[in-house]
Design a protein around this nucleic acid. Structure first.
Lengths: 294, 294
DNA sequence: TATGAGCCTTAGTTTTTCTACATCAAAATA
DNA sequence: TATTTTGATGTAGAAAAACTAAGGCTCATA
């Protein structure tokens, strides 16, 4: 019996959050990414927490970490707590400023699909202000302050998800280039443009064409689809494009499809919403305007 | 549509915790107390949160704060989240170090009732280590890292509470003083000792005696019951004592009861446990040993 | 009118948290 | 086998957050 003079303190909330993220994702690096900090910060948080609890939470291997049985057992409770907290934070934002919404989207989607539609939204409901953040990977909606995300997904639709469009690829190019393309074989003489994140697109499309296997895949890679698109528009080569992202330019005639065949990819453009946002008045308007014509 | 380059951040967790406490308790000062910080810290947290959400959460009056309807609406969700978090933290401690338990108790209870029994516990289960923190008011078990509390309570027993003893008061003094006390009136010539936190005790007891109303209540006040008790033991006066706290000294003969009459107060000494602790193996042992003889 | 309770503000300090690197070990690759 | 890659760690310094202390304000109550 030690009559301690000081009120004992609980662990730091940030350490608990770091633990939950690391345990759920099974990786300190992934947790650091979700929390927008460096992996070193996560290491420190978890070390602090382990010292506080006087126990080990992770088994460190040189290549990644593994949960101890204790951490495994405790994880669901922490996840539930932070989920509830995240929901309440979303509710706070949605009820305090219902006319302001935050969207996270793939850069290409943000620029080529979303941007035109936001003009439409402004016409219909000028009181709604939308802020868009371009991200390469979908954020964890239960934890980060976004109301909706727009990404491609090959998984079955989840509870708060809505299919926006399918994903279908085909080559596009400037009309001047299209003039000299009649057979798939002609592509061998052209620069094949593609996006770095979708480096398999040409391969997929060519494999679906008879004789396409022989075309060399080498070409110019751009880190952003929108830059590759710009390049194609100026006659820089033939781009393997995603239908939803080039519909506008095709309609305007800036780009044309040299070949009729397209390939459907097994994935969709998916809009995902937070449960809190779905309860707000704004949700219906946004959904109606943005997802009107599939 | 502003294409923001930075990933937006959620509010700080500490700010959310401060909000929850302030909203639940309806007072910044009380929240500061629960969180063991100064009221200024709470003010700042809440101001930060209000700025983040771009909304007002409290209506400030010169005398206390009132929740806005929005805050009122959001409170339950936040409370639930932090309750769950608290439970998980307790579970972490209980499963990581099941042999270490933390108790918060009233100073007088800690010293006079609990301390003797801890020796007994050590005999029965030496592997259990108990740390005791003396507090004047019961801590919020759902938020602070204690496994159990021991305080007097006049309220009906709650879900995780167990009655330990009743509370019954009567005068005690050294045998030398008792020798010159025969009637209640004789108390008029003695120094009446009492604890500052229980300043009404003499009043209550005297009112229950015939003729007691006339005795002057003035006497020596001590901030700690145990100091008043020490004073009484050394012949410094007559103390109005609580049965559970002086049983030992009475049995040993260090103190005696000059009058037979006692008054039952409408309250009990109550042990309260965390739900997480009740699930641990240690709970049964502790309960059996400490609460054996009512 | 004086007092006290309760919150606010500001300035300055302490504590916490984060980053930037360098390092290390196992696994994957060549 | 040598090399590269991946993911975690340790440390120092810097940045950010959180806290305290002290003075001030306002309203209710005595």
């Amino acid at each position: 019996m030690s009559l301690s003079p000081v009120r004992p303190k609980g662990p730091h909330l940030n350490a608990l959050r770091a633990f939950e993220a690391a345990a759920r994702l099974g990786s300190f690096t992934a947790a650091a990414d979700e929390l927008s900090v460096t992996p070193g910060a996560v290491t420190q948080h978890i070390k602090t927490l382990e010292a506080w609890a006087e126990t080990q939470l992770f088994i460190r291997n040189a290549r990644g970490v593994k949960l101890t049985p204790l951490a495994e057992e405790l994880l669901p409770g922490f996840t539930q707590a932070f989920d509830q907290l995240g929901f309440s934070v979303h509710a706070l934002r949605n009820k305090a400023t219902p006319q302001k919404i935050k969207v996270a989207a793939l850069p290409a989607i943000a620029q080529l699909w979303l941007a035109p539609r936001l003009g439409l939204l402004r016409e219909v409901a000028p009181e709604i202000s939308v802020s868009v953040v371009a991200l390469d990977t979908p954020p964890n909606l239960a934890r980060e302050p976004f109301d909706m995300t727009l990404f491609f997904s090959g998984k079955p639709l989840g509870k708060n998800e809505v299919k926006v469009t399918g994903d279908c690829i085909f080559p596009v190019c400037a009309p001047s280039i299209a003039a000299r393309l009649t057979r798939v074989d002609d592509l061998g003489a052209e620069t094949l443009l593609h996006d770095g994140a979708w480096h398999e697109d040409w391969d997929i499309w060519l494999r679906a064409q008879s004789g396409g296997e022989k075309i060399p895949r080498a070409g110019t890679v751009h880190s952003l689809f929108s830059i590759a698109l710009e390049e194609a528009r100026h006659g820089g080569g033939v781009l393997i494009a995603h239908e939803t992202l080039v519909a506008d330019l095709l309609q305007r005639g800036d780009l044309v499809r040299p070949f009729a065949t397209s390939v459907d990819l097994p994935r969709n453009m998916v809009a995902r919403f937070t449960p809190a946002f779905r309860q707000s008045e704004t949700y219906e308007i946004v959904k109606r305007v943005l997802l009107s014509e599939g």
